[in-house]
Measured scan of single mutants.
Amino acid sequence: MTYKAILNGKTLKGETTTEAVDAATAEKVFKQYANDNGVDGEWTYDDATKTFTVTE
């Protein structure tokens, strides 16, 4: 399944996708990606669109 992350960081804005077996696995991948890029904020998840959003 393909999951998407939308990054609304102070220094990084954009989107990325990952293939994962479930939302929990995708969330770990996206949170690591955000952390590696200095983005730390509030996370939300929309199951209907399989989209995570982080906003700083």
Rank of each mutant, 00 (worst) to 15 (best):
M1D: 13
L12E: 05
D22Y: 03
A5W: 12
Y33S: 00
K4P: 02
A20R: 02
E56Y: 12
T2H: 08
T51D: 00
E27L: 15
A48E: 13
T17Y: 14
V29G: 03
T55A: 05
G14F: 15
G9W: 07
K4T: 12
N37H: 14
F30A: 00
E15F: 14
G14L: 15
V39G: 03
V29S: 05
K50I: 02
T53K: 05
Y33I: 08
E19G: 05
Y45Q: 01
D47Q: 10
M1R: 12
T49F: 05
I6H: 05
N35I: 15
V54I: 13
D47L: 07
E15N: 06
K31W: 07
T18E: 04
L7Q: 00
T11I: 11
D36P: 01
A34Y: 06
T2M: 13
G41M: 04
V54Y: 08
L7S: 02
E42R: 09
T11M: 11
K10D: 06
V39H: 04
Q32A: 11
D46S: 05
A20Y: 02
F52Q: 00
Y3F: 13
A24T: 09
T51A: 03
I6A: 04
T2A: 07
E27N: 05
K4W: 10
V54F: 15
E15Q: 11
E42I: 14
V39Q: 03
D46P: 01
N8H: 09
E56N: 05
K31D: 01
D22M: 03
E56H: 06
K31H: 08
A5F: 15
E56Q: 10
T25G: 08
N35T: 14
N8Q: 08
E42P: 05
T2I: 14
V54W: 12
A24L: 11
W43P: 01
V54R: 02
L12P: 03
V21K: 13
A26S: 01
V29H: 11
K50M: 10
T53F: 12
T49S: 10
T25R: 06
K50P: 00
V54A: 03
K50L: 11
T53L: 07
D22I: 01
G9M: 10
W43C: 03
N35L: 15
F52G: 00
T18S: 05
D40E: 13
T18R: 04
L7V: 09
A24E: 12
A48C: 09
Q32W: 05
T11L: 12
N35Y: 15
D40V: 14
E56P: 07
E27P: 00
A48M: 10
E42G: 05
K10V: 13
T18H: 06
D46K: 03
T53Q: 06
V39S: 02
N8E: 06
Y33P: 00
T51V: 06
Y45A: 01
D40H: 14
T25N: 07
L7N: 01
T25S: 13
L12N: 07
G9E: 02
A5K: 01
A20M: 02
Q32R: 11
T51Q: 04
K10E: 07
Y3R: 02
K28T: 10
T51I: 06
V29E: 06
D36Y: 08
D40C: 13
G9L: 14
E56S: 08
T11C: 15
T11R: 11
T16Y: 15
Q32T: 08
K50C: 05
L12R: 08
G38I: 05
G9Y: 06
T2L: 14
D36R: 10
N8F: 11
F52W: 07
N35W: 15
T25C: 08
A26F: 01
D47S: 12
F30I: 02
E27V: 07
K28H: 08
Q32V: 08
D47A: 14
N35D: 10
L7P: 01
A5Q: 02
G14E: 10
Y33M: 07
W43H: 00
V21N: 11
V29W: 14
T2Y: 10
N35G: 09
D36H: 07
D46H: 06
G9D: 02
F52M: 01
K31C: 06
V54P: 00
V39W: 15
K50V: 03
A48H: 10
G38V: 02
T25I: 08
A5M: 15
Y45P: 00
D36M: 10
T55L: 06
K13N: 08
Q32F: 05
E15P: 04
A5S: 04
T44E: 11
V54N: 02
T18I: 14
L12C: 15
Y45R: 00
L7C: 07
A34C: 12
T17C: 12
L12W: 15
F30R: 00
V39Y: 09
N35F: 15
A20D: 03
M1V: 13
T51S: 05
G9S: 09
K28D: 05
G41Q: 02
T2K: 12
T51P: 00
D22L: 04
E42F: 12
N8I: 14
V29K: 08
A26C: 02
E15S: 11
K28C: 10
T44P: 01
E42K: 10
G14Y: 14
D46N: 10
N8R: 12
T44L: 08
A34L: 06
G14R: 12
N8G: 04
V54L: 14
T17W: 14
A48G: 08
K4Q: 05
Y3H: 03
V29I: 15
T53A: 05
T18Y: 11
D22V: 01
E56D: 07
Y3T: 02
K4C: 07
F30M: 02
V21R: 12
N37K: 12
I6S: 04
D47H: 11
L7K: 00
T16S: 07
Y33V: 05
G41A: 04
A23D: 05
K50N: 07
A48P: 07
V21H: 12
T2C: 14
K10C: 14
Y33Q: 04
G38W: 08
A48K: 12
F30H: 00
L12A: 07
M1C: 13
T49K: 06
K28E: 09
L12Y: 15
